[in-house]
């Protein structure tokens, strides 16, 4: 059985023949090395900066599972992200003893449910209607949280960040970074496993021609719902540690449009065809942003990201990965 799976993977173009388990191992080692280096640098700023970049890898990959694989554009990233963040605030107030990874999981489940609901109502229609609905979803979720006093309403809520990290010692930001790295490993492994599975082929068929996919037996609505739920879940998970990261969460920071712009721009700049693109995009653009926000300003940040996004979709539709990939023989 294992050899059959391996052969099936080899046949897929561009595959490097690594099994899913082996791939997770490689990712875990990479994550450990990155964590080791950051700890060796030893400044909390390094952790804060690296956290943001890894968070964007997660967000960009999550968006790409729906956007890049099935071709359905989700503009409501902030809605899913903030659901994760605010669910953590609720648990922080009600069940403060809960370990962070559990909170991340709960945030993911809630975001997935919202994705399912929105998708169920709009995914039967042409793709643009789903996109428009997600745009509006971001506004309505923000309205809900702005009016919900329990989580601070418009004023926002303070979240006391523990001083020390559990298990690993050191500052708490190290723990946050570790959790985000772990999430990143899970998301990347999932994205790559999807690409190589029947699910991934079904997604690609939907993206290329939905009517032909149906005629070939692909249950398009069900697959689109799976993609929406998975993508939404990972976005929610990416947002769940945010209250601890910012220590003060208000609608303006939870729904910051930086998340929406980046989650869309990074995959499109890196390349949407497979899991590598969002990673490349997040590291390059995210790194650039960390550099710019230190030296210039954050408004310039969004401007540059927007310009890069527009430039890439016009001039290099296959993204950076596409620029380096050789043409088909």
């Amino acid at each position: 059985m294992a050899s059959l799976v391996a052969k099936q993977e080899e046949e897929r173009e561009g595959s490097r023949g690594l099994g899913n388990i082996a791939f997770i191992a490689v990712l875990a080692v990479a994550a450990a090395v990155i964590f080791g280096i950051t700890r060796w640098v030893g400044q909390s700023y390094a952790f804060f900066a690296a956290y943001v970049v890894v968070q964007y890898i997660v967000l960009g990959t999550a968006w790409n599972i729906l956007g890049g694989y099935t071709g359905y554009v989700n503009f409501g990233i902030t809605a899913f992200f903030a659901i994760g963040a605010y669910s953590t605030v609720v648990m922080y107030k009600l069940t403060p003893w809960m370990p962070l990874p559990v909170m991340v999981l709960v945030g993911g489940v809630l975001a997935a449910l919202v994705g399912l609901g929105t998708g169920y109502l709009t995914l039967r229609l042409r793709g643009v209607f789903f996109s428009i609905a997600t745009l509006a979803l971001a506004v309505v979720v923000q309205t809900l949280f702005t009016n919900w006093d329990f989580v601070g309403g418009a004023r926002g809520a303070y979240v006391l960040r523990p001083r020390l990290a559990p298990l690993i010692g050191g500052e708490y930001i190290q723990y946050l970074f570790l959790v985000m790295l772990g999430l990143c490993v899970i998301v990347l492994a999932t994205a790559r496993a999807i690409e190589r599975s029947a699910l991934g082929y079904g997604f690609a068929a939907i993206r290329d021609d939905e009517a032909a996919a149906e005629a070939s037996g692909v249950p398009t609505l069900r697959l689109k719902l799976i993609a929406t739920a998975l993508s939404g879940a990972f976005m929610g998970m990416a947002g769940a540690p945010l209250p601890y990261y910012v220590a003060y969460l208000d609608p303006a920071s939870g729904f910051s449009l930086n998340y929406a712009v980046n989650a869309i721009a990074m995959p499109l700049i890196g390349g949407t065809a497979n899991w590598v693109g969002p990673v490349v995009g997040a590291i390059l653009v995210g790194g650039l942003q960390q550099y710019i926000s230190v030296t210039i300003s954050s408004a310039v940040n969004v401007l540059i990201t927007g310009l890069l996004l527009v430039a890439f979709v016009i001039l290099a539709p296959q993204g950076i990965v596409g620029l380096f990939k050789r043409r088909q023989p």
Binding site: G67, G68, G71, Y72, V73, F75, G127, V128, S131, L257, V261, I264, A265, L268, T272, A299, V300, V302, L303, T305, G306, L307, L309, V310, V313, I314, P317
Partner: peptide, 19 residues
């Protein structure tokens, strides 16, 4: 390529204009 990149193009324009 209207559905994925075309939509994202206008999304990018939205932010360029706003910023």
């Amino acid at each position: 390529d209207q559905s994925l990149r075309g939509l994202s193009f206008f999304f990018g324009l939205l932010f360029i204009a706003e910023v």
